[in-house]
Amino acid sequence: MENLIANFNYVIVVILMMIGLWAMLAQKNLIKKCIGMAIFQTGIILFFISIGAKRLAKVPILSGDGVPVVDKIANPLTQILMLTAIVVGVATLGMGLALAQKIFRQHASFDEDDILKNQRK
């Protein structure tokens, strides 16, 4: 239990990813699926940021002379990776919403069942 409280950010990561996954797979509404996708990606971003973070750590900028003390600076790599992942996430979300809009224009509905029924006609 103490372990869970000390690492509460990972608990939130798992909760976010479960919500996202459930929305992507179980929801019938296309927009809700897109929202689920965004939540899932946010969970992963939080996960990566958590593994690079340290308590009371400084920004990793070399100043003056001397070798940086690795324990005292945050890992910059995970943050840079997540910048890329955010860009990818925005692009996928945009693509998903654009497709949902096209589908809505065709079937006047976001509901997966309605759309499938419409397509069978």
Binding site: M17, L21, M24, L30, K33, M37, F40, Q41, I44, F47, F48, I51, A85, V88, T92, M95, G96, L99, A100, K102, I103, Q106, I115, L116, Q119
Partner: peptide
Amino acid sequence: YMAAFNYLIMGTMGACLYLLGVG
């Protein structure tokens, strides 16, 4: 459109799981 949307959901899920594994 619907086929691409389903592929997008599945493909994004796959890529996200991959990214988590990389983590």
